[in-house]
Design a protein around this nucleic acid. Structure first.
Length: 1154
RNA sequence: GCUCAAGUGGCGGAAUUGGUAGACGCGCCGGAUUCAAAAUCCGGUUCUUCGGAGUGUGGGUUCGAUUCCCACCUUGAGUACCA
């Protein structure tokens, strides 16, 4: 009997499905354990070998916990609303529900073939109305809630309405919009309902507010960020502007502090927690107001308190940055090819890809040379005007823009690179890059508002610094200083934020001539402007304390501004003292002698008395926009009366996604749901009716936006506990039994998206008493990525080299492409550098290459022809750069299947190959992210056919630590596959089962218990790679021992079953069991089998081991020393010298110090 | 720039509290089997001038350092001057 893995695996997968082996019970005496994988989006491309990595790890853990006697919940489902399906629908007209269904089928088939122990009876899909009914329901709960800071939790809005009616809003301590007008109870009662609703929206946890969106006037539509490429619409290439639109937002900022604090009690990876902390961005300090002492003429124009427009720049670049990131992740083929060349600095210049310049994202840029390289796809032809304009704007700012078509890049990368090289060489190196985005900070009337984290150092303020963009500057600058200030502003405007940041050494600034008044000393403080202060952060102004902040210190030193020392016993002659520890405040009036904490408290107190400041905690976390102008998402349960949103009663949910003709925005610029003809709410019949019936009395229009991708995934972990419940999102019993996820495994890319929003929703649900815990995942592990091993072929680029002159005429496109085996390159001598490109000498190693070129060139009439004179040209070649080739053409020894490669692409049909002497063609290999554009994707389906799911599972784990990034190399799978065959042979011979009831040998017991101990420790520590090695060692040892004892082999199968469940089940059954191995008890470790009577001591001299010596374990230190010293090898090593010292650690080591 | 993580054979990696560095596997080399190949099995495989040297580099602590400390270099990820 041989190990027929395909048959075995199909058999057990069928068995598990039919017997519902992994169905979790909601009522059980066993302790519960909840293992969850991050929600997958079912993409059309299917799985590659990198995807199942985390699933295999979580599956091993889930199976292990079942062996350990737990009732394990290990569900799986689909985050099935999403952009790709909608994009596909727009292109093909196919309903996204259909394509999603198709994709899920593929996904499920691929998951099933790997043998996961998912409880599929609990599958959920976010796009299923029975699921999104509850997403809508939670949205309604958020709408009907406000955040009461007094009790620090969310409460029902009805309580707030009561307070308004009884005492107005002046005593309400809520998280709400800024600048809310205050009103009395009488005023509240007098407001009409629309006004009341407007006010309530300012308090609700989800609210409608004006937010900026991307508006495309030419298309008459709003575009999502991903529909905008380089500042113009993806389709048609029309300009896009920022426009304010009313959008749903989530008041996540209310939970900023609790989201921060909650991180303390969850066992998530440190890097992930750190990302979330940064994202929340808490800083504690005070806001302080410094009045301006003297305004120049025209002070009546002093700025207002409104914040109009200040988000413009920041928001825009923030959105563009997101877009740029996406574009980096998903390059076109041409972009990928070019980037491959540029990033390796083959041109000796640093390039950045998809980089933000002003309001544009450019494909590639060398900032130092201000050179932009654009690769144009088909879309370029439709937007020549826009691109020309864009180029003009960029070139006005001293950039040089060069463009290539996709065909040029893909067809002749060498000439493209050469052109870039030439352009680079013609450009001066610059440090300044134009800064084009404008950010106007808000500011106080007749004064400067600052936020500081060090209010205790307020007596150390010797100047103020404003960002050059600060709106107050034109108003306060004195005529004498105007020329200098204007010149400075102009100069800094030419530098990008990035450059300002990178170049921290250059100190620059200008004095405005104005003075502010110190709140306590009432002394005038000079107001400067400097580019080290950023307009986009805080108020765009700082109180500069040179003795306590290094940037302020450097600025003061540079401009000879006094640096008063307010720290006792601290030397500030060399640098600022920025630490908050060991601080004793001095020269600070009422703060003298206090430490940081005391002084901070006291000064805030005093500022409040003056009305010139208060304690303030700043968070970077902003409320999250919740509307999407999209079709394929959850519809809002919202209709509009007099422009005010109304919630549909929960008993009428779900509000189903309506059918539409087209998935595009409407001609009037409304979201796709604007195309729906049956999309109005009848408040009498309580159902969705035709738009024709809208009378705005009983029948009203429904919301046209849909919810974003993160809506459904923010609470799905609770739904798995009770997925079929129609009365609630999950029953109280189920929620109280399962409570939270014990182990959550997924990628780190969700650090600040899904993982922050879902914690927010869980805390909200907890406040409302709907879930029993306020953190839903106790432990979270990020699995690393599996990288691809790309294969490259090197091209020979023939051409003509002009005698005595540094000029090379590439002629590669004139003849068939020539490729050279990578090992040949070692023997090719490089010519002296003639013009920056590499050329090669004609010698015995290259003779055949030159001959080949000559042969091919002779057949081509125009190879030698040139507009210039041809006399004096010599045939030559240089080496092109590596081209990706599909990894499926490469064998384990890195040899290319030349025929397959030739048939791959039309242009390679007649390619020539310069091979090794033995006729093989070697490729160069390099580790990169697995991606289609790099032709290094490995599909698990074929692996399952060739080696089986058990081999795949073991190999994925064997590759290395779970959380690490590691390259995939299919060749290595033979190792684990061989192990499984060996395991099989241990149990089954050609004549059948050869397991006996023979009593096990001592060695066999030792092997088994050593394995039990190690495997158990490994699983608990998520060190799955080392377990696989341990299994191999165990099987190697038992094979050597010729072990056939059931007493050994049976427990071994249980140990192995989480990793390789199919083979374990099969052998388990062959051993005579009637039921699945999945709940067999995990073997118990017995240390007594491992007790040794002797130890092989390493005998080391000065720490270097020279030989080993076996000694009984029961010897004491003196006896060991005696035995070692008496040994002939010891005397040999010592060569007659007396040792200075002998270190004996019983059971470990002997070290002789000479 | 800052923050974090990681640097060990040809490759993936192991060494869990400082105690025999390179487990296990791939690849490679040699052998057996075979007409031959695949598959399988056996042996070898850090380098070496055969004295030794050796875990990115240079220091330090220690009887002893891949492991602890300091400085630096490289790579990867995140972040964008957070006052």
């Amino acid at each position: 009997m041989t190990y027929n893995f395909n048959e075995i695996e199909a058999k057990w997968q069928k068995y598990w499905a039919e017997n519902q082996t992994f169905k979790a019970e909601n009522i059980s005496d066993k302790p519960k354990f909840y293992v969850l994988d991050m929600f997958p989006y079912p993409s059309g491309a299917g799985l590659h070998v990198g995807h199942p990595l985390g699933y295999i790890a979580s599956d091993i853990y889930a199976r292990y916990k079942r062996h350990k006697g737990f009732n394990v919940l290990h569900p799986q489902g689909y985050d099935s609303f999403g952009l790709p399906a909608e994009q596909y629908a727009i292109q093909t007209g196919q309903h996204p529900a259909l394509t999603t269904e198709e994709n899920i089928k593929t996904y499920r088939r691929q998951l099933d073939q790997i043998g996961f122990s998912f409880d599929w009876s609990r599958e959920v899909r976010t796009s299923d109305p029975s699921y999104y009914k509850w997403t809508q329901w939670i949205f309604i709960q958020l709408f009907n809630s406000w955040y009461n800071k007094d009790v620090d939790k969310a409460e029902d809005i009805s309580g707030l309405i009561k307070i308004f009616a009884s005492e107005g809003n002046s005593n309400v301590n809520a998280v709400c919009d800024d600048n809310i007008e205050s009103f009395s109870s009488e005023e509240w009662k007098a407001f009409d309902t629309v006004k009341q609703q407007q006010i309530l929206l300012q308090y609700r946890l989800t609210y409608l507010a004006e937010t900026e969106v991307n508006w495309c006037p030419a298309l008459g539509t709003v575009l999502a960020n991903d529909e905008i490429v380089n500042g113009v619409s993806e389709r048609g290439g029309h300009p896009v502007i920022r426009k304010k639109m009313t959008q749903w937002s989530m008041r996540i900022s209310a939970y900023a502090e609790r989201l921060l604090q909650g991180l303390e009690k969850i066992d998530w990876t440190d890097s992930l927690k750190e990302s979330q902390r940064n994202w929340i961005g808490k800083s504690v300090g005070a806001s302080v107001f410094f009045p301006i002492l003297s305004f120049p003429k025209g002070e009546e124009k002093a700025g207002s308190l409104t914040r109009a427009g200040y988000m413009t720049g920041g928001n825009n670049s923030h959105l563009l940055l997101e877009r740029a990131k996406e574009m980096r992740a998903n390059p076109t083929q041409a972009e990928a090819v070019l980037w491959e060349q540029l990033r390796n600095k083959n041109l000796e210049a640093k390039f950045r890809q998809q980089h933000l310049i002003g309001d544009y994202i450019v494909d590639f840029v060398c900032l130092d040379k201000k050179l932009i390289v654009e690769v144009d796809g088909k879309i370029h032809e439709n937007q020549l005007d826009e691109d020309a304009k864009r180029t003009e704007i960029l070139e006005n700012d001293d950039y040089k823009v060069i463009r290539f078509s996709n065909e040029e890049v893909l067809g002749n990368i060498d000439s493209v690179l050469k052109t870039i090289q030439e352009a680079l060489s013609q450009r001066e190196s610059v440090k300044d890059v134009l800064r084009m985005s404008e950010q106007i900070p808000p500011s106080g009337v007749r004064g400067i508002e600052v936020f500081t984290t060090r209010p205790d150092t307020i007596f150390g303020v010797s100047f103020m610094t404003l960002a050059p963009e600060h709106e107050l500057i034109p108003q306060i600058t004195t005529p004498a200083q105007k020329a200098e200030v204007d010149a400075y502003i102009l100069a800094t405007a030419k530098r990008s934020e990035r450059d300002r940041m990178a170049d921290v050494k250059t100190i620059s600034g200008a004095f405005t001539g104005a003075y502010a008044e110190h709140p306590f000393t009432k002394q005038p403080i000079p107001v400067w402007i400097g580019d080290y202060v950023l307009a986009g952060y805080g108020t765009g102004a700082v109180m500069s304390v040179p003795c306590g902040d290094q940037r302020d210190y450097d600025f003061a030193k540079h401009f000879n501004i006094p640096i008063p020392n307010i720290f006792e016993g601290v030397d500030i002659s060399k640098e600022a003292y920025a630490s908050k520890d060991n601080v004793v405040i001095a020269n600070s009036d009422f703060l003298n002698g206090l430490n940081y904490k005391e002084a901070t408290k006291k000064v805030i107190n005093e500022l409040e008395k003056l009305g010139q400041g208060q304690g303030k905690t700043n968070y970077r976390l902003r409320d999250a926009v919740f509307s999407r102008q999209r079709y394929w998402g959850e519809p809002f349960p919202v209709y509009y009366v007099d422009g005010m949103p109304q919630m549909i009663d929960a008993k009428h949910l779900p509000i189903r996604l309506p059918e539409v003709e087209k998935y595009l925005p409407t001609q009037t610029g409304e979201p796709p749901l604007g195309n729906a003809t049956v999309w109005a709410w009848d408040t009498n019949k309580n159902e969705v009716v035709s738009n024709d019936l809208i009378d705005n009395k009983t029948i009203h229009p429904l919301e046209l936006n849909t919810m974003p991708g993160w809506a459904g995934s923010s609470w799905y972990f609770n739904r798995y506990m009770d997925p079929d419940n129609t009365e609630a999102f999950a029953s109280k019993e189920a929620l109280n039994y399962w409570k939270d996820v014990d182990l959550y495994i997924g990628g780190s890319e969700h650090a600040t998206g899904h993982l922050l929003y879902s914690r927010f929703w869980q805390k909200f649900l907890f406040d409302k008493g709907l879930v029993p815990v306020d953190e839903y995942a106790k432990k979270l592990i990020n699995q690393g990525m599996i990288l691809g091993t790309s294969a490259f072929v090197t091209k020979v680029v023939p051409g003509l080299l002009k005698n005595n002159e540094k000029e090379f005429l590439a002629k590669g496109s004139k003849i068939n492409p020539i490729f050279i085996s990578s090992d040949r390159l070692k023997f090719i001598k490089q010519n002296e550098n003639k013009c920056g490109l590499r050329f090669f000498i004609r010698d015995e190693n290259t003779e055949d290459i030159f001959k080949l070129i000559e042969k091919l060139a002779d057949k081509t009439e125009d190879f030698y022809s040139s507009k210039e004179e041809t006399i004096g040209y010599d045939i030559s070649f240089n080496l092109g750069h590596g081209f990706h080739t599909d990894v499926s053409f490469i064998n384990a020894s890195d040899e290319l299947d030349i025929e397959a490669f030739k048939n791959w692409r039309e242009e390679y049909k007649n390619a020539e190959f310069i091979t090794e002497e033995d006729g093989t063609f070697k490729v160069k290999r390099e580790v990169e992210k697995m991606s289609k554009s790099k032709y290094n994707v490995v599909n698990p389906d074929q692996i399952c056919v060739d080696y089986g799911a058990d081999s795949l599972r073991l190999y994925e784990m064997f590759l290395g630590p779970l959380e690490q990034y590691k390259p995939w190399n299919t060749a290595g799978i033979t190792g684990v596959h061989g192990f499984l065959k060996k395991l099989w042979k241990l149990h089954v011979s050609e004549d059948g089962l050869n397991v006996t009831n023979e009593a096990p040998s001592k060695e066999a017991l030792k092997t088994l218990h050593k394995t039990i101990k190690k495997v158990e420790e490994d699983i608990e520590n998520f060190s799955f790679n080392t377990s696989v090695s341990t299994f191999m060692i165990a099987v190697n040892e038992l094979t050597a021992q010729k072990c056939t004892s059931k007493e050994i082999l049976e427990p071994l199968l249980v140990l192995l079953s989480p990793y390789a469940p199919h083979i374990a089940e099969e052998l388990w059954e062959m051993l005579g069991h009637q039921t699945s191995i999945s709940t067999a008890a995990f073997p118990k470790f017995d240390a007594s089998y491992l007790v040794e009577s002797s130890k092989v001591y390493p005998i080391s001299f000065n720490g270097k081991t020279r030989f080993t010596l076996e000694l009984p374990m029961d010897l004491n230190v003196q006896q060991i020393e005696k035995a070692v010293m008496a040994h002939e090898k010891t005397q040999e090593q010592l060569a007659g010298k007396l040792p200075k010292k002998v270190i004996v650690v019983p059971g470990k080591i002997v070290n002789i110090v000479g």
